[in-house]
């Protein structure tokens, strides 16, 4: 259900410490999100493309990943240019397309694609397990890390259970339609799913207790401190900082 398609590479990015990659992606995406200039946003886009190239990901796969975002952007492109106030570029009877609307659309498009590319290059290139590990070492509360890891582990099981219930319903002639019976059936399915999920949670907790779980998160990954990690982080930090300063001072 959750594919970790990009996590298995061997590139320079893949070898970086998850902790470093998380920090770098946070710095870069904040800087990109807060910039207000179209050209500067273009620079961030270039940086994110470089990162994707460094991670040796196939552009085709990356673009496929971005598909849901494109639908969202399409909606913005339809609505914003027509509804934003400003200088008119094109008028067709009552419909006016404004310059500022188009510019805003461009900014949103570039910034959102940039941020997703940053996360694809830096975060999607690690397994959920290493992500949990990295977050743990960044002092994210253990409970949050567990929540992440457990959801990752059990979403598939819960989906399987949902499918099983639905199958059982279908085998007995259930044919979803727009009527009360169908709604009721789905409500039963959802309710049953909650009951099963909570029972499962209880059993998992018991299994964890049996194996000596004491509310502490231990992990197997050992990352040796590596000069490349700090160089990479410094590079990202310097790039974002100089772009931010540039924007504040000269634009």
């Amino acid at each position: 259900m959750i594919e970790e398609k990009f996590a298995s590479g061997r590139s320079f990015i893949h070898q970086l410490d998850p902790k470093i990659r998380i920090i770098a992606s946070i710095i870069l995406s904040f800087a990109a999100a807060l910039c207000d200039n179209l050209y500067i946003a273009g620079f961030y886009f270039i940086i994110s493309s470089i990162l994707i190239t460094m991670a040796k990901l196939k552009w085709m796969d990356v673009v496929n990943r971005l598909k849901p975002l494109f639908w969202f952007l399409l909606m913005i492109w339809i609505i914003l240019p027509l509804t934003f106030d400003g200088e008119t570029v094109y008028q067709y009877y009552g419909l006016r397309i404004t310059v500022s609307g188009v510019i805003l659309c461009c900014k949103i498009t570039i910034k959102s694609i940039t941020i997703l590319l940053i996360f694809t290059a830096l975060i999607a290139t690690m397994t959920v397990a290493s992500l949990g590990n990295g977050l743990h070492r960044l002092y994210v509360p253990d409970k949050m890390v567990f929540l992440l890891l457990m959801s990752y582990r059990y979403i598939a099981v819960i989906e399987e259970e949902y499918k099983r219930l639905l199958r059982a319903a279908k085998f007995r002639g259930f044919n979803p339609k727009t009527n009360l019976h169908s709604y009721k059936t789905f409500a039963y399915l959802a309710g049953m799913l909650f009951v099963r999920a909570s029972l499962r949670a209880q059993r998992v907790h018991q299994a964890m207790l049996c194996r000596g779980f004491n509310q502490k998160f231990h992990t197997l990954d050992v990352y040796q401190p590596n000069r490349l990690n700090s160089i990479f982080l410094m590079g990202i930090f310097a790039a974002s900082l100089s772009l931010v300063i540039f924007e504040i001072m000269w634009i």
């Binding site: 959920v128 998992v204 018991q206 299994a207």
Partner: peptide, 26 residues
């Protein structure tokens, strides 16, 4: 050592090695 009826209850770590090492780490 208790082996549960449903193995899905018992295997909660992302990978097999993580899971088998969970006990020793604890």
């Amino acid at each position: 050592g208790l082996l549960f009826q449903d193995s899905d209850d018992q295997l909660f770590c992302p990978t097999v090695l993580d899971d088998v090492a969970f006990g020793p780490l604890n």
